[in-house]
Design a protein around this nucleic acid. Sequence first.
DNA 1: TTAACTTGTTAGACTAATCTAACTTTATAA
DNA 2: TTATAAAGTTAGATTAGTCTAACAAGTTAA
Lengths: 220, 220
Amino acid sequence: MASQTEENYLKALFNLANEQGEISATDLSSILQVSTPTVNSMVRNLSEQGLVNYEKYKPISLTAKGKREAALVIRKHRLTEMYLVEKMGFGWEMVHEIAEQIEHIKSPVFFDRMDELLGHPTVDPHGSPIPDKNGKIIWKAYQKLSDCKPGDTVKLSALTHSSEDFLIFLNSKKLNLGVHIKIESIEKYDGSMTISYLKKHREVISNVVCEKLLVEKVKS
Amino acid sequence: MASQTEENYLKALFNLANEQGEISATDLSSILQVSTPTVNSMVRNLSEQGLVNYEKYKPISLTAKGKREAALVIRKHRLTEMYLVEKMGFGWEMVHEIAEQIEHIKSPVFFDRMDELLGHPTVDPHGSPIPDKNGKIIWKAYQKLSDCKPGDTVKLSALTHSSEDFLIFLNSKKLNLGVHIKIESIEKYDGSMTISYLKKHREVISNVVCEKLLVEKVKS
DNA sequence: TTAACTTGTTAGACTAATCTAACTTTATAA
DNA sequence: TTATAAAGTTAGATTAGTCTAACAAGTTAA
Ligand SMILES: [Mn+2]
Ligand SMILES: [Mn+2]
Ligand SMILES: [Mn+2]
Ligand SMILES: [Mn+2]
């Protein structure tokens, strides 16, 4: 069974692959906060276990088996986050750190029970999809708020990044998942948007923020 | 902060001290399933941290600081077991293994939240006391069922040992904590007891079992 | 197309936690 | 009271995961 460290490498590889395609030792090194020689030796180890494709000086990738393993760790992480929010009353900005540890618990029944108590959720508290028990992920086709036009009404459904700082910022603006947002206008100069939501709440949000908000068109 | 391994040693030391007083390297070795040289080097390490009193060839003991640390790990273990039973619906025979892992999660708020959701419980699902946030334990003065007399009516309140096998045995006899037991008779020869409980349920249980059941006198 | 920079790899070392083999101290019992 | 057994310690090795320093390969840009 994969160690805690190995599971963290698999997750990092999986996430990087979905953000960039090509993965370098340097990327892993900066995400996992370890030196490149450390990455190098772990990648060789994972490669020997058939989880990673490795050839000297070539970009790193997960094998099919590695992808599945990674997705199952991510499943545990996201189920945990959902459980912490829904059943234990934690805020969405607090759960990542705890889930980072609990995801490594070796007990299938524990995660199965969470899944059951939650009613088999398909997304985590940040809107990211929860892989199924076979490691399969259903990616929903969201668009960035920054790609929407004035007059559009959309539902906030997920985030591209969910750092604690960003989540606390969203809390302060009462921008929770599920909120319906009307785009009033877009400033040409810097792409900042004036939006309204929740009984005429009106805010101006920067392009940096709009880029991180994933939305669905609302049929109305 | 104490590593997972260190925390497990502290717990073992704490439990052994409450069962035997004097602790030997061999005891730790057999409980933790590691060799005596391994125990030796870890005990020296804990001693350097001021958690254990160690002198060559002398029995091992926890310092005040070590006792406190140990009790706080046991607190996390028992809160977790209680949470798993009360909030997640696990049987009392399933929770020890999972708690053995979750007890090492580094997140005070996580355990505080469990404690709060459970309403600050004082005992775990096996009747063992949960140390408070300062590591203080209140030991209740239970007696063994095997020390009771025919005619006594008692409440089953705790267990001296809670191996999975024993818990499954108790399940099969419907002997749960809180059950009121009337001692009908005791067989002189082997100390086995005929007891009745739960609407005239009548059973003969061996002395081996009676020795492991902790009860309180019922005033009636 | 070659020099300079960036990225990746190798070599060698370290720490925590473990082991086995060998030795020393303490306990037991003839 | 001394020989034997049991318990504890030391020495030295191993594995996973990490590091730094040095070197090699690949990329970029003059
Ligand atoms: Mn997360
Ligand atoms: Mn993790
Ligand atoms: Mn337990
Ligand atoms: Mn443990």
